[in-house]
Design a binder for these strands. Structure first.
Lengths: 185, 185
DNA sequence: CGGTAAAGTAAACGCTGTCCACATACACTA
DNA sequence: TAGTGTATGTGGACAGCGTTTACTTTACCG
């Protein structure tokens, strides 16, 4: 339901209907519909993490660690954006209601055991380790980088840019990551 | 209602209640609740435009047009972010459902007659005119710049960063605008 | 004075989340 | 083996929501 219609579509009664069960049966498994949505969101975050991981796995550590770091950051950004375009409902659900960033719920992770935010941190660490980022610039850089792609994703999914064709969005995403790379330091 | 509770709080029946009127009376003024929300969103966008304008009005054209251009862009970004922090409900309402960017509804503007997007374009034009931006880099730059502040605003308002203190958010905003300035070209 | 259009009302429908009391079914223990 | 407790599911009800249909009031203008 979240996949198709986003957070508003995850409605308790409909879930029980699909389970061929009475509406109240849901209350044996979730305290209320907010708790149900919470569980769904957790799944969506895991899927997002998986999408980012897959994008990251395409680049292996080679000769130049700086190239690797750049590619990692790019992978996180484009993986994020790609998931948002491929699974708009799940993406919107994943960020529909605030779980704090510093509560590493293991249920939000994929195979690497890192949630999306931690994957971003990983990429930025590689930037710093390879000398692309000073310690000072590294600080809070995840928030800056995250804001950019998240903003684009939301403007496209549920904002004024929703009519923009996908390939143009992805092209903008590329420019965006480049902008982050250049602008962070 | 939007101011206090965001888009979900603008409920038709409650509006009629506050107007001391029967629920159906609303249908003499709005086709349905979506139309009502549309009207509310329009107001919210105007307020946002006004907030940006006010921030922009603090900087006047001086000696150096490049300084002016930079300050303009900064004003748009920080005006945007400031409004989001001051009026979270209205901000969330303003972007709750997609009106396309290229439908210049005059109702969305403030005193200058420009909607928020057009105000951003104005600032970027100043960047180009003063030589800070090449024609090529100018293209679609509004989407890149917009994405960044919008993303931060949403991560804070209804995302995982909602517990971050305001002053830290604004500090991040400053860095963000700097990143855009540097990263656009 | 009369007719027309705008605004408001009343009752009803189906949908939602949620609470209450009650039924079953399985497991483990005395 | 009998019995009890916990997990799960059911049925009925309630309030709130958006929306429709049909009816009433109000105000104005020729």
């Amino acid at each position: 339901m979240a996949r198709v219609g986003g957070p508003d579509a995850v409605v308790l009664r409909e879930a029980t209907r699909q389970a061929v069960v009475s509406p109240n049966a849901a209350y044996r498994h979730f305290a209320n519909q907010a708790a149900l949505l919470d569980a769904v969101r957790s799944v969506c975050l895991s899927r997002l993490a998986a999408a980012i991981e897959e994008e990251m796995s395409k680049t292996r550590l080679g000769r130049d660690p700086q190239v690797f770091a750049r590619k990692s950051l790019r992978a996180v950004g484009m993986g994020y954006l790609g998931f948002a375009m491929r699974e708009p409902g799940m993406f919107r659900t994943a960020f529909s209601v605030p779980p704090t960033v510093d509560s590493p719920n293991p249920a939000n992770t994929a195979s690497m055991g890192l949630n999306p935010f931690e994957l971003l941190s990983l990429a930025l660490n590689r930037m710093q380790e390879s000398g692309l980022l000073t310690k000072k610039d590294r600080k809070d850089a995840e928030y800056l980088a995250w804001s950019t792609v998240h903003g684009l994703a939301l403007l496209v999914l549920e904002g004024p840019l929703h009519k923009m064709p996908h390939e143009r969005v992805l092209a903008l995403g590329e420019r965006l990551v480049t902008m982050v790379e250049r602008g962070l330091s």
